[in-house]
Each structure stands twice: as structure tokens, then as C-alpha cells.
Nucleic acid binder design. Structure first.
Lengths: 189, 189
DNA sequence: CAATAGATAGAACGATCAATCTATTTATAC
DNA sequence: GTATAAATAGATTGATCGTTCTATCTATTG
């Protein structure tokens, strides 16, 4: 991939994170990237396609983070039995390692809500669905409801990190997850 | 308060909920309200002041909902011992009774993040602080960390209601809160 | 050197934005 | 009935938006 395109995607992700999709203009993105406006249009058909690619890359990075974090936990000694707890820890590190302002997918869904069939809305919905399936498939002994509860905790920690210290939000996420899912006993609810 | 002003505040809240603050124009607000543009400017100095009043009214309504929901629970037989569980139930009903798209205060904070001292950002931060204090003061036997955990659950349910059925999000919020806080025993963590 | 492709700056387009002004109409109060 | 205030429609201002176009410049390749 072109270096300019990489720069654009990286800067667009940062600006979308900090200001939202509709609030940030293309001129801001290209000026901050040190790239000409026409270069942006040579790589992306429109602003929406740029936003869509930003979201796709974010999703790839996030899912890789969740997947590869198990190996990190193994190498560093701490390896909780419960896959749900390990996912919670992985998400906690995602929150502390990045300085995001809430979930970019939820923001995208909100900002494009007036067009429910827009590809960006489907990307956002797809991401949440994939995350729920990832959680569910990580521990088949757990019920779909329990998977949904871990998703609730993950969303809650991401939101709490906006108004509280991200480290605090991350710590409480893990604490709750351990309290709910650490025990070998699987609740039948 | 003027009827036109009420109409404007109500319509603005709905449109801000569904489309965000920066995405919705004043002309949309006045046309949907059946009110002239100048009437809006007779009641509000600017778009930002309108948004600020919308948030103030939302906060009042939400805190009243939390406060008065205890009496509703009493009258309808079900009255859990734990104040934390009662707050979770109250928030669950808030989610199912309204068709909001995420937390309007978090959205405001995100959209105005480029101006950290903006009154709207301070309104959003103030609301989250008040909610945390409300939770903390509802049960002084609980630790600040436990109060923060209920806040995390509340945020999580609000976020989950965006991609899942709000009824589902509300039900799982109550289920987790009961699992964590229903027992008389207070954890010392 | 010549040719091709990619990147550049800058202007221009139509549209929309928040905000202001004017002039007219409607409703309330004395 | 008259005076006062509120609400109305519509035009306007200056700014910004996404998008397109042109014309110049730079780098690589043959």
C-alpha cells in the first residue's frame, strides 16, 4: 500500500476518533497528513469510503489484538482458566494502550443512523456481531446470555474510559469479569 | 415556559438523539417543530445554548426517573434490598421506555471534544460525576470501586442497547447487578 | 533524454451551515 | 379599539463542506 494512503488512513482514524466523522473535514485530514487533496481522491472514491476503510482497519487491528493476546498472556505467566476473563483482560489492555474516545463503531452507527442501509452502518453492526460471536465461540460451555453479559461489560468499560481514567475503567472491567466468570462452575441461567 | 420553546426543546432532543449535534441543522429543527427560525433565536442565543438546555432537561428528567423509581418499585411489590440493584432496575426501565441511541451526554462530550472547556463538555462531565455520586450515596456500605462498577454496568447496558434489543440489554444489566450486588454480604474489595 | 505516472497547489462548483436583518402578520392585554 | 409583544416568512451574510477540475511539478522507468 502507498505510503501516502497509509498516512491518510492513520491521520483520518485519529481525527475521526477525536472529533467524529461529520465534524472533521477532508481539508483538515489532508493538511494534517501533509498530502494533497487530490491524492486523497486518488486513493479513496469519497469521504465515506475513507471512513469505511478506517473502520475496516480498526476492526482488523482489534480482532488481532484479542486473538494474539492469549499468547502474550501465556508468555507472561498469568493465564486465567476462563476464556471470558482472558478476553476481558485483552480488552482492558486495548483501552489502556490506546487513547480512544469511546467506541468508533458506535459513533459511526450513530452519525450515519439516518441512512440505516449505509455500508458504514453495516460495518458497525457487523463488528458488534463478530465480537459477540467471538466471545461466544471462545467458551462453548457458556450460554449466549453470558456472552452477551461480557459484551455489556466490554461496552461499559469503553464508555467509562471516556469520563474516568482509562486505567480505572480497565481495572474494574477485569474485576467484574473475574467475579462473574472466573469460577469453574458454569451458571445455568 | 413558552409552548414554542417547549416544542423546540422536545424536537431538538429527538433530532440530536437520532443524528447528533453537529449533523443536525437549525433549519431542520425549526421546520420539524413548525416554528420560525427567528423564534428559535428569540428563545436561545445560539445553537450551542439550545443544545445545552436540551442536556440540562435530559439530566433533570433522568435523575428524577432514578429518584422516583423507588416509590414505583415499592408500590408494585418488588423492592430489592440492595439500592444498587434498584438503580440498575430503574436504568433498565429508562432504556426500555425510551428509544435513545446511546448516551446523549457521551455524544455531546465526543462532538465537542475539540473544545475541552466548552459548557457542553462540562455539562456532560458534570452529569457523569453526579450519577457516580448518586450511586455512591445510595448505599454507603458499598465502596467507591463498587459504585464505579455499577456505573460501568449502566454505561454498558446503554451502549449494548444500540446494537442489541434494548429489552435484552436491560434484562442483562439487571441480571449482572443482581449477581454482583444482591447479596447482603458486602465484598471488602 | 523522453515518457509515464503520481503528487502538488489552487481555484471553482453547488450545497449547506449558523447567524442576522427586515418587514409582515398574529395574538394578547389594557 | 388600540397598543404591545411575539411569531412569521424570506432574504442575506460569510464561512465551510464534499467534490471536481486544471495546470504544474517530481519521480521513476525505458
Amino acid at each position: 500500500m502507498s505510503e501516502k494512503k497509509e498516512d491518510l488512513l492513520h491521520m483520518a482514524e485519529t481525527l475521526f476518533d477525536n472529533h467524529g466523522f461529520h465534524s472533521i473535514g477532508l481539508k483538515k485530514i489532508v493538511s494534517e497528513s501533509g498530502v494533497a487533496l487530490m491524492t486523497l481522491y486518488n486513493h479513496f472514491a469519497s469521504k465515506d469510503e475513507l471512513a469505511a476503510e478506517v473502520l475496516k482497519r480498526r476492526e482488523e487491528r482489534y480482532m488481532e489484538h484479542l486473538t494474539f493476546f492469549d499468547t502474550y498472556l501465556e508468555e507472561n505467566g498469568e493465564y486465567p482458566d476462563s476464556p471470558f476473563v482472558r478476553i476481558a483482560i485483552a480488552h482492558a489492555h486495548w483501552l489502556t494502550d490506546n487513547s480512544y474516545q469511546g467506541c468508533l463503531f458506535l459513533r459511526a452507527k450513530e452519525e450515519y443512523a439516518s441512512k440505516p442501509d449505509h455500508p458504514i452502518v453495516e460495518l458497525a453492526n457487523g463488528h458488534k456481531r463478530k465480537l459477540r460471536e467471538f466471545v461466544q465461540n471462545s467458551d462453548l460451555r457458556r450460554s449466549p446470555k453470558e456472552a452477551l453479559r461480557l459484551c455489556l461489560l466490554i461496552e461499559g468499560a469503553t464508555a467509562l474510559a471516556e469520563t474516568e481514567d482509562p486505567d480505572t475503567a480497565a481495572r474494574e472491567l477485569v474485576a467484574i469479569a473475574e467475579s462473574l466468570f472466573a469460577k469453574t462452575q458454569i451458571s445455568a441461567v
